[in-house]
């Protein structure tokens, strides 16, 4: 339950930042926090108190945590990093044309 609570708080915090903050970089940070919340939740829920899913050479213990969510989260983290980089690039470019990163002053983002 605690994990779900932390997940909800972080996810809504991120969504709040994306919707109500005006600074574009803050909005990207909000997006990052949303992603972090989801990934944290996936890993926290998939932890069943067993060991890391890596075999030791000499002791073949076979009670592992579920490795699938970890693999999926890894994919998600990397995709998230590339989308963040792309978004920041757009913001640099926009700042060059509009001289601001305040979304209130950019009527194109507000209609």
């Amino acid at each position: 339950m605690l994990h779900h609570l932390v997940f909800t708080v972080l996810f809504l915090l991120g969504l709040y930042t994306v919707i109500y903050k005006n600074n574009l970089i803050k909005m990207v940070i909000g997006l990052n926090i949303m992603e972090i919340a989801v990934f944290f939740w996936v890993i926290a829920v998939s932890d069943t108190g067993k060991s890391v899913p890596i075999y030791h050479l000499n002791k073949f213990a076979a009670s592992f945590n579920d490795p699938v969510p970890q693999a999926l989260t890894l994919t998600g983290i990397i995709i998230g990093a590339s989308t963040t980089a792309l978004l920041l690039t757009f913001i640099i470019e926009l700042n060059k044309f509009a001289d601001t990163i305040d979304s209130n002053k950019l009527e194109g983002l507000n209609e």
């Binding site: 574009l24 989308t83 792309l86 978004l87 757009f90 913001i91 470019e93 926009l94 044309f97 509009a98 950019l106 194109g108 983002l109």
Partner: peptide, 8 residues
Amino acid sequence: TEAAIKYM
């Protein structure tokens, strides 16, 4: 660029 940011 604005359109791209929004789309993204």
